[in-house]
Simulated assay, not measured.
Amino acid sequence: MANGAERECGLVVMFSDEELKEMSGVKRGLDYIEVMCGCTSHRYGDAVGRIRVFQNGDLEITCECTPGCQEDKLTPAAFEKHSGRETARKWKNNIWVIVNGEKVPLFKTVLLKYFNQVSKNANGSHRSHNGRVSHRDEFVRCTRCNKERRFRLRTKEECRIHHDALADVNWKCPDLPYDKITCDDDEERASRRVYRGCTRSPTCKGCTSCVCFGCEICRFSDCSCQTCIDFTRNAKP
């Protein structure tokens, strides 16, 4: 089985019992494991949820911060922001799981093993200094209010959201799934928009080091656009 996972009684055994020992709320699915998680805001306290770790590297969080919360299938970054964490964009540090009764950051657990493997093995030469695939932030303009909205491209799900928005000729601010913005919200200041998350220069205007021309994170085999079709046909087996 790819990535070293084995199959047992119809379930993909992604992690051994020893690796998940003392971890709270563990549940095994057909192609994922689910664990209780949370993120702490100094202002609002703990927001709890359940994180699903898939063998393909995807991470999904269902929020349970309140009984009526409807937030589902959030990326870790989106869950971190939803929790009200003041120092956002460090979700590997800020999102925790309970191990032996203590809050332990995700990066100190085995739960990011498949996520890190996908990042490491992705195609393309657009890599940061630590060897991981790098995509700079991009903007899409709302067709209703003409304001530009930022898209962070750190995960495959975030790349898909941007990819679909770019292809939608009628894309509007409320279509952004993780920021919950409307056309009434202010656009980012021009001085802030120049920062694009390039690994070489935050104010980079676009170069072959930070602009990806196609990789396993930002191209999709189930998409019918010509860009994805060409990538899928030409990708190495």
Rank of each mutant, 00 (worst) to 15 (best):
M1H: 15
A2L: 13
R7C: 13
C9I: 11
V12D: 14
V12H: 11
D17G: 13
E19F: 13
E19T: 06
L20D: 00
R28F: 07
G29A: 07
D31E: 13
I33C: 04
V35H: 00
V35I: 09
T40F: 12
Y44L: 14
G45V: 02
D46G: 08
D58N: 13
I61G: 02
I61M: 01
K73G: 10
K73M: 12
A78F: 03
E80S: 03
S83H: 06
W91N: 00
W96C: 07
V99C: 07
N100G: 12
F107N: 10
K108V: 06
V110N: 10
V110S: 08
L111Q: 02
L111K: 03
K113V: 08
V118G: 02
H126T: 06
H129Y: 15
N130M: 15
R132H: 08
H135E: 00
H135V: 01
E138N: 10
C145K: 07
N146T: 15
F151V: 07
R154F: 13
K156I: 07
C159G: 00
I161N: 00
I161V: 14
D164P: 01
A165L: 10
N170T: 13
N170I: 15
P174E: 05
D175M: 08
I181M: 14
C183D: 04
D184T: 12
D184M: 05
D184I: 10
D185H: 12
E188S: 06
E188C: 13
A190Y: 09
R193I: 12
R196Q: 11
G197I: 08
G197E: 03
C212R: 00
G214E: 01
C215I: 05
E216I: 03
R219G: 02
F220L: 05
S224M: 09
